[in-house]
Amino acid sequence: MLIDLSGKSAVVTGSTRGIGFAVAKGLAESGARVVVNGRGQKAVDEAVAELKKALPKAQLQGVAADLATEAGCEALVKAVPTTDILVNNVGIFNPQDFFEIPDSEWQRFFEVNVMSGVRLTRAYLPGMIDRKWGRVIFISSESGLNIPVEMIHYGFTKTAQISIARGIAKRAAGTGVTVNSVLPGPTLSDGVVDFLEKMPSEKGASLEETAAAFVRQHRPSSIIQRAASVEEVANLVVYVASPQASATTGAALRVDGGVVDSIV
């Protein structure tokens, strides 16, 4: 299967590192014009430079905007008024006991993980509908189905993304625009790497071995029994963004390594 996104434009939020960066790279490799987004200009410039080094012919634009706020979302839309593909990837997580999570953290997680995608989809979807082609993808998580007891405030935002994506897909019925959520499982993103490096591990164990041990202990239902790479997640996202995925919409697509113990 040859995925050709030539002539298409894409906005990938939170794409200076991790899954977002891998998605931006995958879309650019497929010929899309890609907007890289992050909170700070320095991080954005470094990510764009890294992508240009790997893909000299890539069409890239960097936009620094803090999508945790309405003003930040408006700044991104002002800089990039239209797009064919929107990947709502930006997100935060932090293990914290339920009884220690203040209201402000619940609100912060909701603003970043949920409202950023709501605001940007509301801004970009009408143009997609007018052009009769578009892709909106929410990067959710298996934690939206298996709510992690150590991150309840994170899990609820991921459940919300799945619900919102399904509802928007129905709102865009028959328009040529698809809306889906993608659910990674444990993935070796930069944030997870930072988290794992703070955990005690066997002497001499590699990062991959530490991650696999974490998966076996904390996500024992995993079938692959390891963490996925960011590229493995990005591969699914790029397919969902492609013309080949035109009959896939309103779906919660798992790339979780089999963590969710369900056949549907």
Rank of each mutant, 00 (worst) to 15 (best):
E232P: 07
R108M: 08
S6R: 09
V259R: 01
S104P: 06
V34E: 03
L183E: 02
L60W: 04
L5F: 01
E50M: 12
T210C: 08
G14D: 00
G257R: 00
E46R: 10
A49S: 10
V36I: 14
L196I: 04
F21V: 01
M151C: 15
L236C: 14
V48S: 02
G144A: 15
A234P: 01
P186S: 06
L86W: 03
G167L: 11
P126V: 09
I263L: 09
E209H: 05
G26E: 06
D256M: 04
K8P: 00
A228E: 00
V149I: 13
A32E: 05
K132H: 10
D190V: 00
V90R: 01
G117I: 03
Q41V: 14
K78D: 05
D45H: 07
R166N: 15
F156V: 15
L5S: 05
A205P: 10
A234H: 01
D4S: 13
A172L: 07
A160H: 00
S141C: 11
A211C: 10
G91E: 05
G167V: 11
G72D: 11
A165K: 04
G31L: 12
E105K: 14
K158H: 11
M199W: 07
A169R: 06
V193Y: 06
A32P: 07
D66N: 15
M199H: 01
A211W: 03
V63L: 02
I139R: 02
I224F: 12
M115Y: 11
A47L: 09
S15I: 02
I263H: 13
S222N: 02
K78I: 09
G20F: 01
S141I: 06
L51P: 04
T210E: 09
A79F: 12
Q96F: 11
I19C: 06
E111I: 10
E100Y: 12
T249G: 05
A47N: 02
R216A: 14
E29L: 11
A43E: 06
S206I: 12
P81N: 10
L188D: 00
S9Y: 02
Q96E: 15
I101H: 05
R39G: 07
G18L: 02
K42N: 14
M1D: 09
P148D: 11
A211E: 00
V240C: 10
T121P: 04
N180D: 12
S6M: 07
R119V: 07
S262K: 14
P200A: 14
D190L: 07
C73K: 08
P200Q: 14
D45E: 15
L253Q: 07
A165Y: 04
A213T: 09
G185N: 05
R108S: 11
A58W: 01
S201Q: 13
K198M: 06
S116M: 02
D45V: 06
G20Q: 01
A54D: 08
G250W: 03
E105T: 10
